[in-house]
Amino acid sequence: MAGLVRTCVILGLSAIAAFTLLASMGEPAGLSDAFSTFRLHFAFGASAIALMGLWLGRVTAIAGLALAFVNLLAGDHPLSPVVPPANGKPLKVMTFNTLYRVENGDRIISEIARHDPDIVFLQEQVVGKQWIYERLKTRYPFQVYCRRVGECDTAILSRYPWISAEAKKVGRDGASFALARFGAELNNLTVATVHLKWPQYSSQLAQLARAWDHLKDSKGEIILAGDFNAVPWSGTLRTFSANTGLRTTGGLAATWPARHHRTGRPCLWCVPQLQIDHVLVSSGIRVTAAAVGKDLGSDHLPVHVELELPMLVSRTANADQFVATTCGICGAIGH
C-alpha cells in the first residue's frame, strides 16, 4: 500500500512539474497560456502532495512546496488596486458574458437595476437577446451592438452621450469588439469591450493587438472590459499590460464556471475557479471598488467596478493658473 501511494505521489509531482514547465514556455503562446490558466490549481495540488510528503519523506515535501511556490510566484501580475475615493468624477461599470443559449434577460435587467452602472459591457449577446436593449433604452439611451447574426456578440450601453461608437469583429481570429468615445463630460474617455477566443484555439495577443489599434490614439483615459478567456497572470495579459499600460482592477475573484458552459445548468464541477472576466483601466483612473455579482444563469458571473476619472481642467483654468504663476515669478524678481 505504501509503495502504491509513493508511486502516485511521484507521478502527481511529475505531472505538476511538467504542467508548470509548459505554463512557463517563454513568450505567450496557445499552449503556454492554456496551462498557465491553472497555476493556482497546480499550486494547490503541489501543496496537498507536500502534506502527504511529510509522511513519505522530506524530499517529497520540499519538492511539493517548491512547485507550489513557483506557481504562486508566477501568479503575480500588474494590478490597479482599490483605493479610497478622491476628488475625481465617479463612474460605475459592469461587464457580463450572458451565455449565448440561455434566456436570462430578466435576470440581467434586474442585476443592472440593482447596481445601477453608468456603462454596461455585454458579451455573447446574440440577436435573440436584443429585446434587452429596448427594455433598457430609457435608462441607457446610448447603445451600440451588432444587429445581424454572425457579426459580433458584444454590446455597450451608456447613460452618457458619446461622440462615436462601433461594434464589429477584429483581427484574423475574429474577436468580438465594441467601442465608444466620449467627449468633455467624461474627460474624453474611450471605452471598449472584447470577447477573446480561448488561447488554445487562437492568438489572443493578435486579437488584443487589433483591438488596441482602435484605442491607442485615444485622447483621454481608457477602459477595456469583457471576457478575455485569460487569467490576469497569463502571458497574454502580462504582455498586453506591459505594452499598453492598462491594468486589471481589484483583487482575485473567480468568475467562471458558475454553470455549464453550453446549457447554463448547474453541474457538479460548476464552481467559479478562474478569473477570466476583467475590467482594465489606464493609469489615470482610480479604482474605488470591485466585486463579482450574483449568479444570473450564465456560466460567467458579472463584474462590477467603481472608478474615478480625473477631473477635466478647462483651458480657462489653465490660463488663470499660468497668469498667477507668471505674476508670482515677476513679483519675486521685482523684489
Rank of each mutant, 00 (worst) to 15 (best):
P141N: 10
V194E: 08
L136I: 04
S283C: 00
D213F: 00
D217S: 11
L268Y: 06
P272K: 10
F69L: 15
I62N: 00
A68H: 03
A258P: 01
L189K: 02
T98H: 02
L268W: 13
C8M: 14
T288Q: 09
I163F: 03
H278E: 13
L224Y: 10
A68E: 05
A165L: 10
A319D: 13
V231K: 08
E134D: 14
C270E: 11
R114Y: 02
S203K: 11
A15N: 02
Q130P: 02
I49M: 15
K294Q: 13
Q275Y: 09
P161A: 12
W233P: 05
E166D: 12
C330A: 15
C330E: 10
P232C: 06
S164P: 00
E134A: 09
A317N: 12
A324M: 12
E124C: 01
L21H: 06
H115N: 03
K294T: 15
D217F: 07
R101Y: 15
Y145W: 12
T236A: 11
L65Y: 03
A86E: 13
P141S: 11
L56Y: 12
N318H: 13
L54G: 15
L296E: 10
W198I: 13
V170Q: 07
K89R: 09
T325G: 01
A2E: 07
L280R: 05
V149C: 00
K168I: 00
N318T: 05
N188D: 11
F38P: 00
L312G: 04
G64C: 07
P28F: 13
G57W: 07
A68F: 06
R147W: 03
V303C: 05
H77N: 04
V191A: 13
L99R: 14
E185P: 03
T190D: 07
I132A: 08
D320A: 12
L122G: 08
D217N: 15
L72P: 08
A230D: 14
G3C: 00
V144W: 02
D153V: 12
A43Q: 09
L186E: 06
G45L: 15
G251Q: 08
M311Y: 01
N71P: 13
S110W: 12
T60S: 00
E124K: 01
T326P: 00
N104R: 01
R148M: 03
G328L: 05
G26V: 04
V231I: 13
